[in-house]
């Protein structure tokens, strides 16, 4: 995760549901209550960059806040991915779905979620490769348009990589033919 990576910066702006375990004075502005305090056990969506740091902080050996799985990683989405990985619109869930998931999974020990995501990622990657080799034009055309519109940013990167390299080979073959 590079300091200059735009996608890492945008990912860290994703909101994650958190619950403060302790009352926090004077931070009411996070909860639409400027000037007030945050009561203990208030559920609050916080951006990832903030939640990441606060989740590992401890005060008197008690964690400051508990993280929860974001809405994009709820069982509803995971079950849909398990049932048919190719039909889920991940972009609708979160533009940086997988990158955000990887960041959250570093903090939470959710082996099952991680396994499910890896499995879905592989299945979708194979589908992406098929589309990338056959696609003509942009992501909107053809019958795979629905699937391709639902790709998150990582997957778009994969699509672009696969498409560009097969295009480079085709271009080279065209050049060989042209040179004759």
């Amino acid at each position: 995760m590079s300091y200059y990576s735009i996608s890492a910066i945008l990912t860290s702006a994703q909101k994650v549901p958190c619950t403060f375990d302790l009352p926090i004075p004077n931070r009411g502005f996070l909860d639409d209550n400027p000037g007030g305090d945050i009561a203990a056990h208030t559920p609050l969506p916080l951006p990832l960059y903030l939640a990441e740091l606060l989740a590992v902080q401890q005060l008197d050996n008690r964690p400051l806040l508990t993280l929860d799985l974001p809405s994009s990683l709820q069982p509803r989405v995971l079950n849909a991915l398990k049932a048919d990985a190719k039909s889920v619109d991940l972009r609708g869930q979160e533009v940086y779905f997988f990158e955000g998931a990887a960041r959250v999974l570093e903090l939470l020990e959710e082996e099952e979620v991680g396994d499910g995501l890896c499995e879905a990622f592989k299945k979708r990657a194979a589908e992406i490769a098929d589309h990338a080799r056959n696609a003509r034009g942009g992501t909107s055309s053809g019958e795979g348009g629905e699937f391709l519109r639902g790709l998150d940013e990582w997957e778009r990167g994969l699509f672009r990589a696969a498409h560009d390299s097969s295009k480079a080979v085709r271009m080279w073959m065209g050049e060989v033919k042209g040179a004759k």
């Binding site: 997988f98 990158e99 998931a101 990887a102 999974l105 570093e106 903090l107 939470l108 020990e109 082996e111 991680g114 396994d115 995501l117 890896c118 990622f121 592989k122 990657a125 992406i128 490769a129 990338a132 990582w154 990167g157 994969l158 990589a161 696969a162 560009d164 390299s165 097969s166 480079a168 080979v169």
Partner: peptide, 23 residues
């Protein structure tokens, strides 16, 4: 040459997704 970018990307993605579990 044709498969490098895609396969490398998939392996990289899987590694990042599995990093927490790996630790």
């Amino acid at each position: 040459s044709e498969g490098r970018a895609f396969i490398g990307g998939v392996v990289d993605g899987l590694r990042k997704l599995g990093a927490g579990r790996e630790i």
